Simulated scan of single mutants.
Amino acid sequence: MRDAARRPAAATVDLATRKFWRLIGREIDLGGEHAWLRAPTVGPGTVGTAWLDAEAALRGGAVHHDLPDAGLIGDWGALAGPGFDPSALHPSITDFYRHTARWRMEVWSSWSPLFQPGGEVISRGFGRRVQQLALPTRPLDVARGLDGRVSVLTDATGAQIAAGWIRTLRSTGDVVFSGRYSTRTLPGADRPSVHVTFPLEAGNLQVFLRPHNRAGGALELASGRGPWGSDGAYITVRDRGRDYAQRVPLHESFLLAVDDEQVLRTDHVLRFGPATALRLHYKLTRTG
């Protein structure tokens, strides 16, 4: 009875949230000028993985689950351009993105005291309910690490066009993130960015990350501040047959590097405006 009573209330909150983004966002044309924001969405309820099959059908291709060598980025050469040379990356970093399914992930998290209460509200009131964007808010939440399932999306020719990465807490099996990974070139950009989409009901959260070479073969992926149409985070919603989008002040950086003991590690920083909200550290170990 209690769960049944919660469902209408949750639906009302979700609808109000979409109305908010419509109010502050701008109307977009996903079939034309703003096609760079075209990305998967889902219906009511949990996000799940049905969006993978729906997108594969839309592209006339297929989705391949549980391939032992599945990777998030099949062709790093597609990201080459001024300021970034994929061939300069440490081989372990390239291997991680090409064969992500082979890597095991351990995680440590540290929230800013200012932002942790908000993260807890989002995680409990929304993330865990829809199984999306359920950020861990306590270090023990991720003490046993994360598991990741990688599904490859191919087009009609069999070429990889994107990958789905479903990350779950090893301790509980709860989904933390369900994301689509690919490459995409922003309007006026001189080279592609890594494009990550988190499908939501009648909308999504999209993040465009610009790759940079760093010392020792390290890789930095960053979404900094900038104007509309530049790397960063965008919320899109569909309301009454019309699409809207808003650039949001969420900025991320990922620094992947191999340490002195030849262990691949990642420092992930999430900022809200100028303030650091969350720091995550990943230890990545290849298996198989």
Rank of each mutant, 00 (worst) to 15 (best):
residue 206 Q to F: 00
residue 163 A to S: 06
residue 252 E to C: 00
residue 198 F to K: 11
residue 277 A to H: 09
residue 207 V to L: 06
residue 18 R to C: 13
residue 105 M to I: 07
residue 27 E to R: 09
residue 205 L to S: 09
residue 203 G to R: 01
residue 112 S to G: 09
residue 81 G to C: 06
residue 93 I to K: 06
residue 224 G to C: 10
residue 120 E to V: 12
residue 61 G to W: 05
residue 13 V to D: 08
residue 97 Y to W: 14
residue 162 A to N: 03
residue 214 R to P: 14
residue 284 L to I: 09
residue 119 G to V: 07
residue 87 S to N: 14
residue 93 I to Q: 03
residue 165 W to I: 10
residue 161 I to L: 08
residue 37 L to Q: 03
residue 129 R to P: 13
residue 14 D to L: 15
residue 19 K to H: 13
residue 39 A to R: 06
residue 199 P to A: 02
residue 255 L to D: 01
residue 270 L to D: 03
residue 253 S to D: 00
residue 143 A to L: 08
residue 223 S to G: 03
residue 231 D to N: 10
residue 131 Q to V: 09
residue 288 G to D: 06
residue 39 A to E: 11
residue 58 L to Y: 10
residue 200 L to V: 12
residue 170 R to H: 15
residue 68 P to I: 03
residue 66 D to Y: 11
residue 89 L to G: 00
residue 197 T to R: 07
residue 113 P to D: 06
residue 256 L to Y: 09
residue 67 L to E: 07
residue 132 Q to S: 05
residue 83 G to S: 05
residue 210 R to N: 12
residue 10 A to R: 11
residue 99 H to S: 14
residue 178 S to K: 01
residue 42 V to F: 02
residue 160 Q to M: 09
residue 158 G to S: 06
residue 119 G to A: 00
residue 205 L to W: 14
residue 244 Y to C: 02
residue 53 D to E: 14
residue 185 T to N: 02
residue 221 L to G: 04
residue 150 V to T: 13
residue 140 L to H: 15
residue 58 L to P: 04
residue 218 A to R: 03
residue 20 F to Q: 15
residue 211 P to V: 02
residue 29 D to G: 11
residue 163 A to R: 01
residue 247 R to V: 14
residue 2 R to T: 15
residue 55 E to G: 04
residue 166 I to M: 01
residue 270 L to T: 08
residue 56 A to V: 02
residue 234 Y to P: 00
residue 112 S to D: 07
residue 82 P to A: 04
residue 141 D to E: 12
